[in-house]
């Protein structure tokens, strides 16, 4: 196949599709689905033959194209109730036009005078790092940050010290109550405070699960000053 491909030029399946439409000088409102589907699949095949990790999204659009193609092949029913049935391509065209608009908007943004690239302001002296614990600058975290923190702690564990001894059954409810008690007492705690000196997996796991549950119930709030920074936990209501 005589295609020349640049691998990083496509931002996604829609980008590839737009490229094919432009290359073939096709009217976006009247896409010859059969031709485009074939070319699209050819591209995917090339990407695959190069052993590239094909993002799932490319396959989803391939399936969509084939689905549209198959719907176009079906004879149109003479049923008056389906008279207003939309062109199967309509949704895709809408999506493509929207994407095209945002792509243009992105280019437009990039063409503006960008601070610290094209235009510069007077340099200010580097601001002294603020040692005060200004709680307002903490960004609210989501569950994924918490999972990341959990993984870090697990990774830090000395494997030889990890022994699974199934003697004591911890209860999640107990752990939740413990955490709430400690938080009520101390106002705020860090994640590491809660883990303490104990390194057994079950303890960390239950602490973590208890935090997730408390966050879900909106009984506590978790904040983190920066990525990988200290996680601070607060009661959601005083």
């Amino acid at each position: 196949m005589g295609y020349e491909i640049k691998l990083d030029i496509f931002e996604g399946p829609l980008d590839l599709l737009l490229y094919l439409i432009k290359k073939n000088e096709i009217d976006i409102y009247d896409i010859p689905i059969s031709l485009i589907t074939k070319q699209y699949l050819d591209y995917i095949e090339i990407l695959r033959s190069l052993n590239l990790d094909l993002a799932g999204e490319f396959l989803v659009l391939a399936a969509t194209l084939i689905h549209i193609k198959s719907r176009l092949l079906l004879p149109v029913e003479e049923d008056p109730s389906t008279e207003d049935e939309e062109d199967p391509r309509a949704e895709l065209v809408r999506q493509l036009l929207e994407y095209q608009a945002f792509k243009e908007a992105a280019l437009q943004l990039d063409s503006r005078p960008v601070l610290e690239r094209d235009v510069f302001t007077r340099s200010c002296p580097a601001v002294e790092p603020d040692d005060r614990e200004d709680l307002e600058i903490f960004a609210e975290m989501d569950v994924f940050d918490l999972v990341k923190a959990f993984q870090q702690i697990i990774a830090k564990l000395d494997k030889t010290e990890c022994m699974e001894i199934d003697v004591e059954r911890m209860s999640l409810a107990d752990r939740i109550n413990e955490i709430m008690d400690r938080l009520t007492e101390h106002k705020h705690l860090t994640f590491t405070d809660l883990i303490g000196e104990r390194t057994d997996r079950r303890w960390i796991l239950y602490t973590f699960l208890a935090l997730l549950e408390l966050m879900k119930l909106r009984m506590i709030k978790a904040y983190q000053g920066e990525s990988y920074g200290v996680i601070r936990l607060f009661l959601a209501v005083e």
Binding site: E11, P13, Y99, K103, A105
Partner: peptide, 27 residues
């Protein structure tokens, strides 16, 4: 370019949820 596209979607469609940004960009 990916970040710029995402930023463009956010700028023009804000407030917007991630699912919608994904849908607009197709990735």
């Amino acid at each position: 370019p990916a970040a710029l596209e995402t930023l463009a979607v956010i700028a023009y469609r804000q407030p917007v949820v991630k699912a919608d940004i994904d849908r607009f960009r197709g990735v």
